[in-house]
Design a binder for these strands. Sequence first.
DNA 1: CTGAAAGCGCTTACAG
DNA 2: CTGAAAGCGCTTACAG
Lengths: 341, 341
Amino acid sequence: MPKRDGVTVWHVAEEAGVSAQTVSRVLNNRGYASEAAREKVVTAAAELGYTPNLLGKSLRSTLSPMIGLVVADVANPFYARLHRALEHALRDSDLSVFLLNCDDDPVVERQRLKLLASYRPTGLVISPAANSSLSTADLKRFRNVVLVSRTLPNLPVPTVQTDEAEAFARAAQELFDYGHSVIAAVLGPPSVSTTQLRERGLREALVRNPGRRAVVRYTDGSAAEGLAAMADLLCTDRELSGVIGFNGPVTEGVLDGIRAAGLNYPDDISVIGFTDAVWMRASRPSITAVVQPVEEMGRLAGELIIRMASGQDVDPNTHLITKCSLVRRDSIAKPGRSNEN
Amino acid sequence: MPKRDGVTVWHVAEEAGVSAQTVSRVLNNRGYASEAAREKVVTAAAELGYTPNLLGKSLRSTLSPMIGLVVADVANPFYARLHRALEHALRDSDLSVFLLNCDDDPVVERQRLKLLASYRPTGLVISPAANSSLSTADLKRFRNVVLVSRTLPNLPVPTVQTDEAEAFARAAQELFDYGHSVIAAVLGPPSVSTTQLRERGLREALVRNPGRRAVVRYTDGSAAEGLAAMADLLCTDRELSGVIGFNGPVTEGVLDGIRAAGLNYPDDISVIGFTDAVWMRASRPSITAVVQPVEEMGRLAGELIIRMASGQDVDPNTHLITKCSLVRRDSIAKPGRSNEN
DNA sequence: CTGAAAGCGCTTACAG
DNA sequence: CTGAAAGCGCTTACAG
């Protein structure tokens, strides 16, 4: 049982021949300290292998230098990349990222936020769960809050999003331009802002393309439900010749569903994935996809947090919108499916 | 600027008409408390919306209820899944997981461990960086340490690993059984235990298959270096007809390298991926892969930590070995590549 | 079964 | 520029 290193400010202070708060001042670069004192403290700290106790520090300053990041699922590459990007954006500050999964479950989300709150973090970056019941009151317990990707209505909190509707409309347009007249959107949970905005984009594309038709299915955002939805669609609507998948996992499921029906893409069904994933590039045929600027989103969220944490005023109505782009690959073809009519 | 909730044990104590440490005893289920007191405290706490401050609690008890998880890269699905599994294993305890990325860089690893140490976590689960210089002294600063997947020599610390050598030997055997006589292993960093063990497995397979030959390349474990290694191999060794990729990213690179050379798999080159990834199943042709039981590894690590944290003796020489399996898909064929000799 | 006292390690006012 | 005092919120001994 390894013994705890008992090196505290007091030990450093004694070694350096100064007081504890001079040590504190020097080590935190806060307030005045003579060059002589500074040097003695730094030397002593290094000599003793002093590791400041963040618990004591945070308790006293009523705030810990961490930013909570609450997401639906780290195993979804979108969130894994968001985590990396946020961590990177905060690397020059002394803030670290505390990642919490909520399994896209509002109950777990509440638990996680409670846990996080008990650490009194400096900020919170959150992409709310499906059916999240977060209110202003819940977020009041946190100092600096930013919503990322998914948003919630009526929350006076800055957000970082993408141009969901426009991007989805562009994806639909791509299918229409290839000549598809009946397409499907296999979306996420209807309660989630990204589903709603993408569906709106789909509607807008339909308005601009009279005579075309679209079918919508909702899922929980998993591969399993993506597969089920696709299987159902293929049975239900024989005219269907193009489909857009909500996210990486759903698009996987969609492809599995196509194969399970004994069909191929893009010959029988054209496919677009929303949110690019490595496997979409690696697959053969490769998958045409809408790319979200995840790294940029993480960076923007980090910058907002830093600005707020440093006391600068940030308008709670700040809504940063990043632009998605369409990466054309090999999963779209002209409708050439041998159908029965 | 939301005001901090100032509800402390004292407020709860006052409301309940008891002392602060009775509140503490009740809320932590530690020590005696009358049923009457218990009820009053629980009611008061709920009424006031009391959220215990983990900083105060941890400071006093000299340990925070968190387990640090230090990995090379969360964007690698292997580690993302490990995180999920560990979090899941700890869900019934009151321990949470603090994930830290080290970018597979020993310098960053040191920084992350320093940060982590400053929170005085209950335990540490770590998969060391390439060229990690961690010593017994470094780990002494942590209470309960478990090494996962990657190990380090001469560290008196329990480990959770897979049967790396055997699994890699089996992968090589699969290629030999198909009739390939020259195969390549595109491995990770030579300093990493998993690279070393997998290479050992390859050697063992060669011993059992006289007349066969194997070429080895090292990479940093990224897709980019996987691609470069494969490109180089294809130029260098015209007899090569099978390859095993070190991990998900490297295998992606290997496939890109094959395509970049104008070749196809499995017609020209057979491929096996080590560590299954979703895209290997989704790709066409799908990728035969060695599957590591990631979830089981996370669970075992969590169980070890819990056992150690609860004071049970755990032999530092505990080395749990989990079994990999080979999932046969469509990326292996008999050698039929049109070559020039 | 319960409470008064002290202290975990640090930093924030406040004097000098 | 520096230090003595007090307190952040909690729990660990210690008395009762």
